[in-house]
Design a protein around this nucleic acid. Structure first.
Lengths: 155, 155
DNA sequence: TTTAAATCCAAGTGAATTAATAGGAATTAA
DNA sequence: TTAATTCCTATTAATTCACTTGGATTTAAA
């Protein structure tokens, strides 16, 4: 019941992209260095985000990636589902409305899986990328204030 | 982001035990047949539930297992955590209150993991085994009514 | 026009984890 | 004494994960 590195690294990567890309393209190599993730592996992660329409790739020299839509309109749920596939705790066709499961009528545990699935998806859909960007900027401001305090106390 | 067979089979197994054990011990062999799970594998699952104090084992011939506490006092969360380990989406010391993580101050994604973790644990802690037992009995009643209808229409 | 920087893509690989299987020791009711 | 059962540990087959490798393609800039 753990997210893989796809989800963990991928969320860090797109947050990095959103924080550092102010209408400018960001090359994967920069994200790779800042986030300490292999550039080759990052390619695979960003490729999923691209297929999901979350980022756009710009090819060629000086190329890179940009958000395809504003950070206010991208939920963490969109990002994690693009990276990980569905966030359901089990593969159960009932959860997706298929109702082709042969033991559907005697299956009681499906109610449990449904409750877990809904709670996860509601949680991640309620957090927008822009919130994380704001939080991240706040955190970095605090650190630079702390550092300037330290510097001034040294004078 | 999937539960393993430990959680899925294990929940079915203890639900079977709760439904069929009315103050009587239930042998693993019976659960294994009804739930179509290898008895050897079931042993490993039930052993985790035993260590967590959820079931008691009674050794020897005519032995088996019983719930260690009433089904009303056992949450699905207790069961799944006993079987799977913690239900957190990532291994993050902050989530467990350790606060020894070196990148804690610049880590923004931890808020996401915390929200997911809380929502999962709240969901499973809000379902008691007794509810599943009731649901299961209801389902089986409905099936037997359906069958008696069928039988009477054949007369 | 060449070159270097970048995305894009598919296949391969080693390590780790999962899902069992196997075999036997210990216990106990009949 | 026997058969049924829990209890415990080790092994194994299959799968998944987390990358790595090796290119092909595109494009800005020299």
């Amino acid at each position: 019941m753990k997210l893989s590195t796809k989800g963990r690294y991928g969320l860090r990567a797109i947050l990095d992209l959103a924080v550092h890309g102010n209408d400018e393209v960001v090359a994967l190599s920069q994200i790779a260095v800042r986030q300490n993730i292999s550039i080759n592996y990052l390619e695979q992660l960003i490729s999923r985000l691209k297929k999901a329409g979350i980022v756009n790739g710009i090819r060629g020299a000086q190329g890179g990636y940009v958000l395809a839509i504003p950070a206010e309109e991208i939920s963490v749920g969109d990002i994690l589902r693009a990276l990980e596939g569905d966030l359901d705790p089990v593969d159960c066709s009932e959860l997706k409305g298929d109702s082709t499961c042969s033991s559907s009528d005697v299956c009681v545990t499906k109610y449990v899986w449904k409750r877990i699935s809904d709670s996860i998806n509601d949680a991640v859909d309620g957090i927008m990328l822009s919130e994380l960007v704001n939080e991240s900027k706040k955190v970095h401001e605090e650190i630079s204030i702390k550092n300037s305090d330290k510097a001034s106390s040294m004078c």
